[in-house]
Computed example of a mutant assay.
Amino acid sequence: MAQKATKALAAANTKRLNQTALLTFLFHAFYWLLRVLVYRSTFTKKSLLLYLLLASPQLFVNFVFERQSRPTLLPDGTIKRAGEDLDAKGLTEYMWDITYWTYGNLALVALLGDWAWIFYVVVPAYSVYLAWTTYTGMRGGYTDAAGVPQPGAASKRQQKMEKRGGQRMQYR
């Protein structure tokens, strides 16, 4: 029972990495088969450049997963290192999002043509928009559309106290 958690993590990582490698191969092969065999006339240097530019983040993520999460074994078969947890929160989740988003976009581009790469940009563009509006809101002190600063809403208790003349200090 020694290192049960390490063995379980190593087995789970190996299984998930093998599934990811197979899915990556299948989606990219599907793209290439359709683009070369079916849509040969529309496959240009621009198509190749778009593919290389927009599919490379997912391929890089797969490389990072392989380097960090693939278990390392000793010559006798024992586990030297189980690798990083592929179900971890934070950056790992975003890297899985990139992988799945690229899979979907590869299928769309393979079926619909190069113009479907625009869907790949939707999520990052929306993220930039949210970041910009948050930044300008904080910089402007949370003003409304007319530029008038909005004070924080007072609670009912605070409103009653202000009606009576504010908070009074009592000295004994």
Score class of each variant (00 low, 15 high):
67 R>D: 09
67 R>V: 05
68 Q>E: 10
70 R>N: 12
70 R>L: 15
71 P>R: 10
72 T>G: 03
72 T>L: 06
73 L>Q: 06
74 L>N: 13
76 D>M: 07
77 G>L: 01
77 G>C: 03
78 T>P: 10
80 K>H: 15
83 G>V: 05
84 E>A: 08
85 D>P: 00
88 A>M: 02
88 A>P: 00
89 K>M: 03
89 K>G: 01
89 K>W: 12
89 K>H: 12
90 G>Y: 01
90 G>Q: 00
91 L>M: 09
92 T>R: 00
92 T>F: 00
92 T>L: 00
92 T>N: 00
93 E>A: 04
94 Y>M: 06
95 M>P: 14
100 Y>E: 06
100 Y>D: 02
101 W>M: 10
101 W>Q: 14
101 W>H: 15
102 T>A: 08
102 T>D: 07
103 Y>N: 09
103 Y>T: 01
105 N>L: 01
105 N>C: 13
106 L>F: 07
107 A>H: 05
107 A>Y: 05
108 L>R: 01
109 V>H: 04
109 V>D: 05
110 A>S: 02
110 A>M: 01
111 L>W: 03
112 L>W: 11
112 L>Q: 09
112 L>C: 09
113 G>C: 11
113 G>K: 14
114 D>G: 09
115 W>I: 10
115 W>H: 08
117 W>K: 06
117 W>Q: 12
118 I>F: 13
119 F>E: 12
120 Y>C: 11
120 Y>Q: 15
120 Y>E: 13
122 V>Q: 13
122 V>K: 13
122 V>Y: 14
124 P>N: 01
125 A>L: 10
126 Y>M: 09
127 S>R: 14
127 S>K: 15
128 V>I: 14
129 Y>Q: 07
130 L>T: 03
132 W>K: 05
133 T>Q: 04
134 T>S: 11
135 Y>I: 04
135 Y>N: 06
